[in-house]
């Protein structure tokens, strides 16, 4: 698993496209559901923060989902999941309780994803910094 994160409009999509031109692309921004079948050797799942907001999963349920992706990846050395998640954690604490909850859960899910990812990259205006792997 390869986790790619960074602020909004920092060039994450372009960076991943350049590295995985052959990947099947599933994006939350196009309204795709999270549980879309992983049926290509390399699958990019874009917009993790949006899926976190839209699904009613708890952190534990997210952990199980991450495990499913890992299991699929382990079926073959050619299979890989690339997760893209926008960092939404560095602003002012939101006024709305719901918004705070979303931000908290997103941060935890990112920690859990990063913990099991072989590689983690932080994208800053098109430049990557490999922070794990």
């Amino acid at each position: 698993m390869h986790f790619v994160t960074g602020g909004a409009y920092n060039g994450k999509r372009q960076w991943v496209r350049d590295r995985y031109p052959e990947a099947k692309w599933i994006s939350a921004y196009n309204g795709s559901p999270i549980l879309a079948e992983l049926d290509a050797p390399v699958v990019v799942l874009e917009g993790l923060e949006k899926w976190v907001r839209e699904n009613s999963y708890t952190r534990e349920e997210w952990k199980r989902q991450i495990e499913k992706w890992l299991n699929w990846e382990n079926e073959s050395s050619f299979q890989r999941v690339v997760l893209i998640g926008t960092d939404i954690s560095k602003g002012i604490v939101p006024m709305e309780k719901e918004h705070r909850g979303w931000r908290d859960l997103t941060g935890w899910v990112y920690q859990d994803v990063a913990a099991v990812s072989k590689r983690v990259d932080l994208i800053w205006y098109g430049v990557n910094q490999t922070i794990k792997g």
Partner: peptide, 28 residues
Amino acid sequence: EVLWEGISGNELVLQYSRILGHLHQALV
């Protein structure tokens, strides 16, 4: 650095963030 929070659904804010992000990418 202003692109680090959950960007609201406000179209104007989105457009502004997009322009600023793209501008920073072009400059880097």
